[in-house]
Simulated assay, not measured.
Amino acid sequence: MHFNTVALVGRYQDSGLDAPLRRLGAVLQDTGCTVLIEAETAQNTGVTHFTPASFAEIGARADLAIIMGGDGTMLAAARQLATFDVPLIGINHGRLGFITDIPLGSADEAITGILNGAYVQDERILLEGRVMRGEQQMVSGLALNDVIINRAGRGGMIELRVECNGNFMHSQRADGLIIATPTGSTAYALSAGGPILHPQVNALVLVPVAPQTLSNRPITLPEDSILNITIRALGRVESGASVHFDMQTLSNCQEGDRIDVRRSPHRVRFLHSQGYSYFSTLRSKLNWNRMLHPWDDPDDNSR
């Protein structure tokens, strides 16, 4: 891949983001790249000496987009750029950083290496979903992590009827239901008791949130499954139900609304530094066995 035009996207709500954006932009220009900066990032950070561009313009012009922020910033950028097939690099200016995996302190060196061809490519599936009220489509959206149906306020559980490829699976009463990609399996789905799916596993996972019946367990389905979830009853929930696409919310769903979820035809491409390991990320973020046998950890330089 040749990266002639590179776009910068940042979590502009973070203080102190202007300096690393300027520094990274200068590194890119020194290598001969044309640098774009996402328009709201430029406006809110004051980094205006690179060419401002909308996400649509970035999709049309850029060969690469570098996202500086946390995983939420990456999720938002991935949904915007997925239809353009622009590869993404994540620089962690947040906290956890499962998909923004390059530390800010080593960003310049890592980006220079990637521009010179020292990278690992990683493709991730997306979900697409819509909320139907009768024959009317209320909203639709893409999700890199998950589509979530849950109760919107205080009160009782909601009742959901779940179908897969036109076949009835089950009805459940719960606080909600998570439909997650392998990328999203380490997000809310993991907190709710779901399994971790390796990104190369071609599957989706359904995870009930606090189900009334404890036999309602997470289930893994083929990635080409078409899911239809109907809100059968809202019980004593005062504020209705909500649907989230990567935590972007449609509230005030009604009884009888149907949520259709399937794999999107688009994929997101991540580029990582040479030597990237998904298992290293899990060890780092989930603290797997760090205190048991540190000599087994290739990332531990203390030995």
Score class of each variant (00 low, 15 high):
179 I>L: 13
97 G>C: 12
171 S>V: 09
263 R>M: 09
66 I>T: 05
71 D>G: 08
12 Y>P: 01
199 P>M: 02
284 S>K: 14
5 T>Q: 09
302 S>T: 13
41 T>C: 03
286 L>N: 01
181 T>N: 05
255 E>C: 05
192 A>S: 15
133 R>P: 04
296 D>T: 13
60 A>E: 15
93 H>Y: 13
21 L>D: 02
175 D>H: 06
279 F>C: 12
198 H>C: 06
213 T>Q: 13
59 G>T: 03
79 R>Q: 12
187 A>C: 11
46 G>V: 10
56 A>T: 15
72 G>T: 04
68 M>F: 07
269 R>Q: 13
117 G>Q: 10
130 R>P: 05
77 A>K: 09
39 A>L: 06
85 D>L: 01
14 D>P: 02
198 H>I: 06
182 P>M: 08
239 S>V: 05
170 H>P: 00
117 G>E: 09
216 N>R: 09
51 T>Y: 01
244 H>Q: 14
87 P>R: 12
48 T>I: 01
234 L>T: 02
114 I>Y: 02
110 A>V: 07
105 G>C: 00
277 S>Y: 04
117 G>C: 07
266 H>A: 15
188 Y>D: 06
246 D>K: 11
160 L>Y: 10
27 V>N: 06
57 E>F: 06
270 F>D: 08
32 G>R: 08
158 I>K: 08
133 R>Q: 12
161 R>T: 14
3 F>P: 02
21 L>S: 02
58 I>T: 00
128 E>T: 15
123 E>P: 02
94 G>F: 02
16 G>K: 04
240 G>D: 04
107 A>C: 09
136 Q>D: 14
156 G>M: 03
268 V>Q: 07
261 V>N: 05
271 L>V: 03
55 F>T: 00
284 S>A: 14
287 N>Q: 15
104 L>G: 07
237 V>R: 14
110 A>S: 15
80 Q>T: 03
143 A>P: 04
85 D>F: 07
193 G>D: 03
150 N>Y: 08
262 R>M: 12
158 I>R: 12
125 I>N: 02
19 A>T: 15
123 E>W: 10
127 L>R: 11
235 G>W: 01
93 H>K: 14
166 G>M: 07
167 N>G: 01
44 N>I: 02
191 S>T: 10
252 N>T: 14
269 R>E: 05
272 H>Q: 07
283 R>C: 03
5 T>N: 03
152 A>I: 04
240 G>V: 00
299 D>S: 12
